[in-house]
């Protein structure tokens, strides 16, 4: 009865593991009962088995009936918003990659072919990453959606007095702000995806750009950390776009993301080889100041304390972000 085994397997493999065994034995009993009735004491033929399985129908459909509700990564309720945000993200990403290509040509027009190849590479690495983060954002929203029974209960208990007030404009999240935020983050991301070399002190002369003394140590894991943190920033804007208005739920999600970003920065900044070890020397070489001068001491001190300052400013910024959300939520009530 190999056919029966195959049928039962086809149904149960698409069901939660905890129910598989029980459903399999019940289904086997059913098939045997149906066979017995059909065969009526005669010898069991393969044809009879086929007839019975045909009557039970497509195993996919049967499994669907057993599952009852359908499960989604991004459900129909969010799908349209998802497409909308995805479009924004992809356009922003393409613009970002384009802009950083232009910047590179301005800085170094000779190796235009290299820049072009780099652009192609970042299209193939950056775009899937942007799509990935967008999906993660929506999948989180979908996951935290209230389950069916709770929603049903709420719907049944509905009274006209439950009607939400027309949202206070103070509490609504401006789409344009979130979109601008995403575009901005994506542009920075695109530039960093090429190189962190342009993140530093820029030097210009009469005949134009002369070069940059970078803050960061090129070619370490730092670049990936920065991309991850910027990605979290985009995720935050996407979640804001989905929610559309301030609520404590949203503030909580933002707090979680901010804490994650802060921990990320903390890890990155305390790791070895983050900062450009030759920063001060390069500034001297460029003739910005001479060793031992007053400017030298000031810059050196700032440079040496940079880690703490950045962490402090970042912490204040991230906490303000949360406080701001709480204030806006309170005001909109």
């Amino acid at each position: 009865m190999e056919l029966i085994d195959r049928y039962i397997y086809a149904v149960t493999q698409k069901l939660p593991e905890s129910q598989r065994e029980d459903i399999a034995s019940e289904l086997r009993g059913l098939i045997e009962d149906m066979l017995e009735e059909r065969v009526n004491g005669r010898e069991v033929h393969e044809e009879y088995v086929e007839e019975v399985l045909q009557e039970l129908g497509n195993p996919k459909k049967l499994a669907q009936k057993y599952r009852g509700t359908k499960r989604y990564l991004i459900g129909p309720e969010y799908f349209d918003t998802f497409l909308y945000v995805l479009k924004i993200v992809l356009i922003a990403m393409s613009v970002g990659i384009g802009i950083s290509f232009v910047i590179q040509i301005i800085i170094n027009p000779v190796s235009i072919l290299d820049h072009f190849i780099e652009m192609i590479i970042s299209i193939f690495t950056g775009l899937p990453m942007a799509v990935g983060w967008t999906i993660i954002g929506f999948a989180i929203a979908e996951y935290y959606q209230e389950d069916g029974l709770q929603e049903l209960k709420k719907e049944q208990d509905w009274k006209p007095s439950d009607l939400p007030p027309i949202p206070n404009p103070k509490g609504s999240i401006k789409r344009s702000e979130s979109i601008a935020g995403i575009v901005f983050l994506v542009i920075i991301m695109a530039v960093f995806a090429f190189s962190t070399d342009y993140f530093g002190v820029w030097f210009f002369q009469e005949n134009g750009f002369r070069g940059v003394v970078p803050f960061l140590n090129e070619g370490t894991y730092v670049q990936w950390f920065l991309l991850l943190i910027l990605g979290l920033g985009i995720l935050k804007e996407v979640i804001k776009l989905i929610y559309g208005k301030w609520s404590y739920h949203l503030v909580m999600l933002i707090a979680i993301i901010n804490i994650a970003s802060f921990v990320g920065v903390l890890f990155m900044i305390n790791g070895p080889d983050v900062w450009n070890p030759n920063f001060i020397n390069e500034l001297i070489q460029r003739g910005l100041f001479t060793e031992g001068s007053e400017a030298f001491h000031v810059v050196t001190q700032i440079w040496n304390n940079a880690t703490n300052w950045i962490l402090a400013i970042l912490a204040i910024g991230l906490i303000w972000d949360i406080v701001d959300g709480v204030i806006k939520t309170v005001r909109s009530k």
Partner: peptide, 25 residues
Amino acid sequence: GYSLVTMLGDKGIQVEPGTLYPLLR
């Protein structure tokens, strides 16, 4: 399950096993 299919069928209520079994669960 299958005894139910037969019982209901005898009383004029046709139900497919593929519908009834998931419903019972």
